[in-house]
Computed example of a mutant assay.
Amino acid sequence: MEKITSLQNKKVKIWTSLQTKKGRDEHQLFLVETEHLIEEANNAHVLKAILSDEDGDILVTKEIIRKLKTSQSTIHKLGLCAIPHFEKKRYKKVILLDEVQDPGNLGTIIRTAKSFGFGAIYCSENCCDAFNAKCVQSSQGAIFSMPIFRQDLKSVIAFLKKQGLKVLGTSLKKSIPLKEVQKINDIAILLGNEGQGVKDELLALCDEITRIEMDGFESLNVAIAGAILMYTLQ
Score class of each variant (00 low, 15 high):
47 L>P: 01
92 K>W: 06
58 I>L: 14
225 A>E: 06
190 L>N: 05
133 A>Q: 09
21 K>R: 15
30 F>E: 00
86 F>Y: 13
117 G>H: 05
89 K>I: 10
56 G>R: 06
62 K>E: 13
175 S>M: 05
50 I>A: 06
96 L>M: 01
227 A>M: 02
37 L>M: 02
156 V>Y: 11
8 Q>M: 08
27 H>V: 04
171 S>E: 12
55 D>H: 13
65 I>D: 11
125 E>K: 15
43 N>K: 14
172 L>V: 13
180 E>F: 11
151 Q>L: 12
126 N>R: 15
32 V>G: 02
157 I>E: 09
157 I>S: 08
93 K>S: 11
117 G>P: 10
11 K>V: 10
206 C>H: 09
43 N>F: 08
51 L>T: 06
100 V>L: 07
27 H>S: 06
193 N>P: 07
216 G>M: 01
215 D>S: 11
57 D>F: 07
23 G>W: 03
151 Q>M: 13
28 Q>F: 00
40 E>A: 13
128 C>W: 01
181 V>A: 12
192 G>K: 08
78 L>A: 06
14 I>N: 00
233 L>A: 03
12 V>D: 07
93 K>D: 05
138 S>N: 11
102 D>K: 12
9 N>C: 11
152 D>E: 14
58 I>S: 12
137 Q>W: 15
37 L>S: 03
167 V>I: 14
114 K>P: 00
63 E>V: 00
83 I>F: 10
127 C>S: 07
98 D>P: 09
119 G>V: 01
39 E>K: 13
5 T>M: 00
219 S>T: 14
207 D>W: 06
155 S>C: 04
225 A>G: 14
35 E>T: 00
84 P>C: 06
19 Q>P: 02
108 T>Y: 07
40 E>D: 04
177 P>C: 13
234 Q>G: 05
112 T>A: 09
93 K>P: 10
190 L>F: 03
5 T>K: 02
60 V>G: 02
170 T>R: 06
150 R>G: 03
230 M>D: 03
217 F>H: 09
162 K>C: 02
56 G>F: 03
125 E>P: 10
217 F>W: 03
172 L>R: 10
230 M>G: 01
207 D>F: 08
79 G>L: 01
120 A>Y: 03
77 K>V: 10
35 E>C: 00
31 L>I: 08
133 A>S: 15
99 E>M: 12
133 A>D: 12
108 T>D: 08
76 H>Y: 05
164 G>L: 01
56 G>N: 07
89 K>F: 00
81 C>E: 04
